[in-house]
């Protein structure tokens, strides 16, 4: 028996919005420690890794490890039927071929349930090596989304250059060149407005704008985003999900042809 309950459906809606542009379907691996999802996008350029800890749920029970393959378009249709403040419960029997998603209004006067067919997905799990990153940048998630959106107008690629002075995002194309520099913030009143750079050595890497823009669909989940970079390895873009877990996106760099 698997049962996981969250106080607000809005969290699950935001999580789905953060992955459904990259993935058509995905396997949710459930165990007593929580829910994990790892999947590559269709073109095998990026990898999405979602971790939801069992202690972040209002109620969590998972007697046997369970892998639930879900069509994310179908899940989105079901979640559209929930009000943001509704409680949401996911339930499945051991070895079931369906999952039940139930919404309850705060006053318990409306209860709806949706049974969704599960899929058998033949998904490859990748081993992600431990990396000592050369640069780790923490910045407001909204600012990162704005930069990715703005620079995508000028080129398919963005160059991220990180030094101890700051981080520079550049794009160059037919229109010309765009550069956005962010300096590390001195003192800020609000922690969520800070730009913090931890640098071991400077790094310059090139990434495809369309994936970065897809990752920024996670912006509503978190006030801050963390970018971890190292020469010739994938960029890690991480959004914390408060008291519940995190979503990490790994993006392979563009390399010299």
């Amino acid at each position: 028996m698997f049962e996981a309950r969250l106080g607000q459906a809005t969290i699950l809606k935001k999580i789905l919005d953060a992955i459904k542009d990259l993935l058509n379907e995905a396997t949710f691996d459930c165990s007593d420690s929580g829910i994990q999802l790892q999947a590559m996008d269709n073109s095998h350029v990026s990898l999405v890794s979602l971790t939801l800890r069992s202690d972040g749920f209002d109620k969590f029970r998972c007697d046997r490890n369970l892998s639930m393959g879900m069509n994310l378009g179908s899940m989105a249709k079901i979640l559209k039927c929930a009000n943001n403040e509704d409680n949401v419960t996911m339930k499945a029997q051991d070895n079931a071929d369906t999952v039940t998603i139930m919404f309850e209004s705060a006053n318990q006067e409306k209860v709806s349930d949706y049974e969704m067919k599960l899929m058998n997905l033949d998904q490859e799990h990748l081993g992600i090596p431990e990396t000592d990153f050369s640069c780790v940048v923490r910045m407001p998630a909204m600012e990162f989304a704005r930069i990715c959106r703005d620079l995508a107008q000028f080129s398919e690629s963005v160059v991220i250059c990180c030094t101890k002075e700051g981080v520079k995002f550049s794009a160059s194309g037919d229109v010309g060149t765009a550069n956005i520099k962010l300096a590390q913030t001195g003192s800020v009143d609000k922690e969520e407005e800070a730009v913090i750079i931890e640098m071991q050595e400077p790094v310059t890497l090139t990434f495809a704008c369309r994936y970065l823009n897809a990752f920024t669909k996670a912006t509503p989940l978190s006030t801050q985003v963390q970018l971890s970079m190292c020469a010739d390895v994938p960029l890690v873009v991480e959004y914390a999900i408060k008291d519940l877990g995190h979503i990490r996106y790994y993006l392979a760099p563009k390399i010299e042809d």
């Binding site: 350029v45 760099p253 010299e256």
Partner: peptide, 14 residues
Amino acid sequence: KTKQAGIMNFFSKK
């Protein structure tokens, strides 16, 4: 000129 690398160039199958 740059070309897009694949994620499996970096991460191995488990």
